[in-house]
């Protein structure tokens, strides 16, 4: 099956700064992929490359097997909700739906109308008068009613209150379950990603630090606590992601597909948040190197 997003050596440079570099990824279809990373890590750049709002400086990217925004057909297959879920403030809810119907050949007006009704939005209301949650739901409605195979969302819930956030994610999951669409969404809110994502990508310092099926990632990462020990003495199959030591104790996060037999370790499972933080921290350390090269 064709990957929904396939990137190879992908990079984007703004003047002298690489916003994204050497990004190699392959997101399988049917997933809800969560893209997480600190501010300025390159998340929005990657998503804009995927929808064709940006063109790569290096490498290649294909989305659903095609070049982003290369044709009207390609555009119709991908739905995009940009950061801050923008709508036209002066246009009414009904105007937005009409615009959607005119601009999208595959527009599902039944789906759009039923969603607006379900949400209790007044079709005559101007978008500028809607609450943040309602505006986000309107933007989502426009994106799903074009019946995309892939839905890309950039920080869709970042500015919403907890209730609006939950309602937005409920709508999103309902769409995914009903239409078997794939999703790529970026977010800071790991607790939300934990519920909705089954594929995870950690981006830090313009690079992909980690990517894979959530279940696999959680099964292969462990926190080891035990008597102080040099990470270099661990078995070959155990890759150390993070290590900290006191005078007597060592705590390490390791990645390994083998079971850990050493009785000296207390082995704990990681939560998705632990995993994300470990790789973000690892990325922050590695990320300092290119900066040094520039200074030389």
């Amino acid at each position: 099956m064709t990957a929904v997003l396939d990137a190879s050596g992908l990079g984007k440079r703004y003047r002298r700064r690489w916003a994204l570099s050497d990004c190699t990824l392959s997101i399988p279809p049917g997933r809800v992929a969560g893209l997480v990373g600190p501010n300025g890590a390159g998340k929005t750049t990657l998503l804009h490359l995927a929808v064709g709002l940006l063109t790569p400086t290096a490498g290649t990217i294909t989305v659903l097997g095609g070049r982003p925004a290369a044709s009207p057909q390609q555009l119709a297959r991908v739905g995009f909700v940009a950061q801050e879920t923008p709508t036209y403030a002066a246009l009414s809810v009904a105007d937005h739906l009409q615009l959607g119907a005119r601009l999208n050949p595959g527009w599902d007006s039944k789906l759009a109308d039923s969603r607006i009704e379900q949400l209790g939005l007044d079709p005559g209301q101007r978008a500028g008068k809607l609450s943040g949650g309602q505006r986000a739901q309107l933007a989502l409605t426009l994106a799903v009613a074009k019946r995309p195979e892939l839905l890309i969302l950039d920080e869709p819930v970042a500015s919403l209150d907890p209730l609006a956030r939950r309602e937005f994610l409920q709508s999103l999951m309902e769409f995914v379950a009903g239409h078997e669409a794939s999703v790529v969404l970026s977010s800071h809110l790991v607790a939300d990603l934990e519920r909705v994502c089954d594929y995870l990508i950690v981006l830090a310092a313009a690079r992909v630090q980690l990517a894979g099926e959530v279940d696999d990632l959680l099964a292969t990462h462990h926190r080891l606590t035990g008597p102080r020990r040099d990470p270099a003495t661990l078995p070959a199959g155990q890759q150390v992601i993070e290590a900290s030591h006191t005078d007597r104790q060592s705590t390490m996060i390791v990645r390994t597909s083998e079971p850990i037999h050493d009785p000296a370790w207390t082995v704990e499972q990681l939560s998705m948040e632990d995993l994300v933080l470990a790789y973000m921290a690892a990325g922050a350390t590695v990320g300092r190197r290119p900066a040094l090269e520039v200074q030389r």
């Binding site: 049917g30 709508s171 999951m173 995914v176 379950a177 994502c197 089954d198």
Partner: peptide
């Protein structure tokens, strides 16, 4: 149904 659970709990349908 998978759809109802996914929509109700805001979780991934694959989890259900």
């Amino acid at each position: 149904t998978v759809k109802d659970v996914a929509a109700g709990l805001a979780i991934n349908p694959n989890t259900v």
